[in-house]
Amino acid sequence: MPWIAWDSMMRPKSHGGIGFRDMQLFNQALLAKQSWRLIQNPDILCARVLRTKYYPEGNIADTVFTGNASSSWKAIEFGLELLQKGIVWRVGNGTKIRIWRDPGSLVTS
């Protein structure tokens, strides 16, 4: 039986691969979509339940990840890590900028 490297199996069929997806990245993308849904719809039941336990005083994007969480929340955190890499926020009037916490808001001279 000839063995094939996983990298070559994940290449598109047009490039000589089988076209498999990287399931871990695919799963993280789907979980990021669920995290985005919680951000966009903070009043749905799922978001309200999770907010009560995991981020009662803030926004889901400001959540500090803890080791003591349910498997569902750990999965959402996994998707949120990917989402936070791509989230862009606008300054607006500047009232929500936290100079010590937000990246890029500290100006050096």
Rank of each mutant, 00 (worst) to 15 (best):
T63R: 14
L82E: 08
S14N: 12
R21F: 05
W89Q: 12
W36P: 03
R98E: 12
Y54F: 01
G58T: 04
P42L: 00
G16I: 04
N93T: 13
K74M: 04
C46E: 14
L83A: 05
L31W: 08
Y55R: 03
W100C: 14
F26Y: 15
Q28G: 10
L45D: 14
R48E: 08
V88M: 10
W3Y: 15
L25C: 08
E77A: 06
K74D: 06
W36Y: 08
K74P: 00
A47F: 01
N59E: 06
T66D: 10
S8M: 15
G94Y: 03
R11L: 15
N27I: 15
F26R: 15
G58Y: 00
R48S: 05
T63P: 04
A47K: 03
R37H: 10
I60Q: 02
R51Q: 11
A29F: 10
S14L: 11
Q84K: 15
W36A: 10
S105K: 06
L82K: 09
Q40N: 08
D43V: 14
C46G: 11
G67S: 13
I97T: 03
G92I: 04
R98P: 02
F20S: 03
F65L: 04
N27T: 14
D7H: 05
G79E: 01
A61E: 07
T66P: 04
A75L: 04
I97L: 04
D62I: 03
I76Y: 02
R51N: 11
L45E: 09
T66A: 10
I39P: 01
V64K: 15
G86M: 10
A69F: 03
T63K: 08
G19W: 05
A5R: 05
I4M: 11
I60T: 00
S109V: 11
K96D: 14
N68M: 08
G17S: 02
A75C: 09
E57W: 10
R37D: 11
R48H: 05
F78I: 03
L80P: 06
A29K: 12
I60A: 05
I39K: 13
L45A: 10
P42Y: 00
L25R: 15
R101N: 13
W3R: 15
K13W: 03
Q28R: 11
A75M: 04
V49N: 01
K53E: 13
G58A: 03
M23V: 15
Q24I: 15
W6C: 08
L25V: 10
R51E: 06
P42D: 04
W89A: 11
R98T: 08
S105C: 09
S71F: 10
S71V: 14
L82N: 07
W89R: 13
S14R: 13
D62Q: 12
K85F: 07
Y55K: 04
E81C: 14
T52I: 09
R48T: 07
Y55S: 00
G104K: 01
P103D: 10
S71T: 12
W3G: 15
A75I: 01
I4K: 10
I97K: 00
K85D: 13
I60F: 00
I87T: 06
